[in-house]
């Protein structure tokens, strides 16, 4: 059963076609990788799925629902969460507050009850804080919970961003280059986290350049170039594919 399915998705910006006739699906409980050289259209695909962009044609389904033209907050409510290629945390908030913002969909209280600080709403807010703190611990950031997030290192900010994405307990997680700017040890840590999340039943689609990470953790890989899918299969199949080698290394190298 596929949790995410793109069918015939196309997106142009003026005369530039960023994504052309793209179809692929991600099985529930799988870790899927989206690869491709710079400018291949990977981030556009992530933005299309999360609703920041809408396709010109084609359908995008999460479970059975076509969300191709739904606004982002409705898509999030179907159980989708994401991170960004260039970490996008909210200025002026501590690490804990960032994760708390991610818990908005699971706040278990109405906005009015929360504004009036009704007893049930206060209990719910305390529970949300505890949950946020536990998530920070899970990504190894609980010791920086009350630190202004913009003062954290880049790798730390990425981990806070992942905790924020997990706070709504999504079914599908989109990670846009989760290890960009991280060293080998930090990358391996992210890999282990992704693995643990999958074992917990989460479905993950990640854009990733780190071949080792893709090979180690992705059950299924889609490779794009110039907005089109050029290969799909296991990591080993894709890396061995002549079209993929050509896309990454050029034609001459692929012939040898």
């Amino acid at each position: 059963m596929s949790l995410l399915a793109l069918d015939g998705v196309r997106k142009s910006f003026g005369g530039v076609t960023a994504v052309a006739d793209l179809s692929f699906s991600v099985r529930e409980g799988a870790v899927a990788g989206l690869m491709g050289p710079n400018g291949a259209g990977k981030t556009t695909v992530i933005n299309l799925i999360s609703g920041l962009l809408h396709p010109d044609t084609g359908t995008i389904r999460i479970a059975a629902t076509d969300i191709a033209h739904a606004p982002p907050h409705e898509i999030a409510a179907t159980g989708l969460a994401r991170t960004y290629q260039n970490v996008r945390l909210i200025a002026g908030m501590t690490a804990l507050e960032q994760v708390l913002a991610g818990r908005y969909l699971r706040r278990d209280t109405s906005l009015l009850a929360s504004i009036l600080h009704l007893p049930a709403a206060r209990t719910a807010m305390r529970a949300a804080r505890d949950h946020a703190r536990a998530l920070l611990a899970r990504v190894g950031m609980d010791h920086r919970a009350d630190t202004l997030a913009e003062t954290l290192s880049y790798g730390e900010q990425r981990r806070v961003e992942i905790a924020r994405a997990l706070a709504a307990e999504p079914r599908l997680l989109l990670l846009d280059e989760p290890t960009a700017g991280m060293n080998a040890a930090e990358s391996a840590e992210i890999g282990r986290l992704v693995h643990a999340l999958r074992d917990g039943g989460l479905t993950v689609l990640m854009v990733e350049h780190n071949m080792k990470l893709v090979a180690d953790f992705c059950d299924h890989v889609v490779v794009m170039n110039f907005g089109r899918k050029i290969a799909e299969g296991t990591a080993a199949e894709c890396i061995g594919d002549p079209a993929v080698q050509e896309a990454y290394f050029g034609r001459r190298h692929a012939q040898h």
């Binding site: 999360s50 609703g51 920041l52 606004p71 982002p72 907050h73 898509i75 999030a76 409510a77 969460a81 994401r82 960004y84 996008r88 909210i90 200025a91 002026g92 908030m93 507050e97 913002a101 991610g102 908005y104 969909l105 924020r164 709504a168």
Partner: peptide, 15 residues
């Protein structure tokens, strides 16, 4: 606060 600083990030959080 989220909407003020980054409306698209806020929307992706379900706000």
């Amino acid at each position: 606060k989220s909407v003020r600083e980054d409306p698209s990030v806020a929307a992706c959080l379900g706000i």
